[in-house]
Amino acid sequence: MELHRKGSRSAVQGQEQWFTGSVRMDPVIGAEPPGRPGSAMVTFQPGARTNWHTHPLGQLLIITEGRGRAQSDGGPVVELLPGDVVWFAAGERHWHGSAPDAAMTHIAVHAALNGSTVDWEGPVADHDYLAEPENPAG
């Protein structure tokens, strides 16, 4: 058994080369061979988001707090609320982050393939991020 108490490990800020805005990442568990999942609790301040990216083995998001947004390449922007669960298939190009006016926290889970968990691309354009979500919370 491996136990990590809340606050026992240091959070890191999301790197500017992969995120727009202020993002905090708290480790949950690290990816180790042979295929152990990696996970982080990620908090996006209002307006913050990832760059476009893919995961070689897919990614699971569990929204825990706030209000967010996500989009797969070619699809609509969708709103994310606490309790929502999102699966991005292996190689599915996407982004995710907070709403423009609200913070959002999710737990992200992914596994490594040949030591890699993510392939980063460029930033999400403001006009894409600010598009009206297909399923806004009411």
Rank of each mutant, 00 (worst) to 15 (best):
G138V: 14
V78G: 09
A99N: 04
S22P: 07
G75N: 14
V85D: 08
V28P: 06
V12Y: 11
P37E: 01
P27E: 03
G30L: 12
L80Y: 10
A137L: 09
E2S: 15
D26T: 12
M25I: 09
G83H: 03
F19E: 04
I29P: 06
Q45I: 03
G66M: 05
V124M: 14
Y129V: 01
W87D: 03
L3C: 10
L60T: 07
G58W: 05
P136W: 13
Y129R: 00
A108Y: 13
H55C: 03
L80C: 11
P33G: 13
A11C: 00
G35E: 07
S10P: 02
P46Q: 04
A112N: 00
D73L: 13
E65I: 05
N135G: 05
H106P: 06
S8W: 09
E16Y: 02
T43L: 00
P82S: 10
I62E: 14
A70C: 15
V77L: 06
A137N: 10
P136C: 07
R24K: 11
V109K: 09
G68W: 13
E79S: 13
T117R: 01
D101K: 11
T117V: 00
L61I: 08
S72T: 06
V118P: 11
A40N: 14
R9P: 05
G30E: 13
H94C: 14
A11K: 04
A103N: 10
W95T: 12
G30D: 12
L81V: 09
G97I: 10
E132A: 08
V12E: 14
V28Q: 12
R69P: 03
E121H: 12
A48H: 03
Q15Y: 08
P37N: 04
I62H: 14
W95S: 12
I107A: 03
R49F: 10
P27L: 02
A112T: 05
A111R: 02
E134M: 10
H53M: 09
E32C: 08
E92H: 00
L61M: 10
H55P: 06
T50N: 01
P34F: 06
I62G: 13
E65F: 08
T64E: 08
L81C: 12
P133T: 02
L57D: 04
G21H: 00
A111M: 06
L3K: 13
L113F: 10
L81I: 04
G91S: 04
R49M: 14
Q15G: 09
S8D: 03
S39T: 06
W87P: 00
R67W: 01
K6P: 07
A90T: 10
W18G: 03
N135Y: 04
A11W: 02
E65W: 11
I29M: 14
W52P: 07
G7L: 05
G21F: 04
P136G: 04
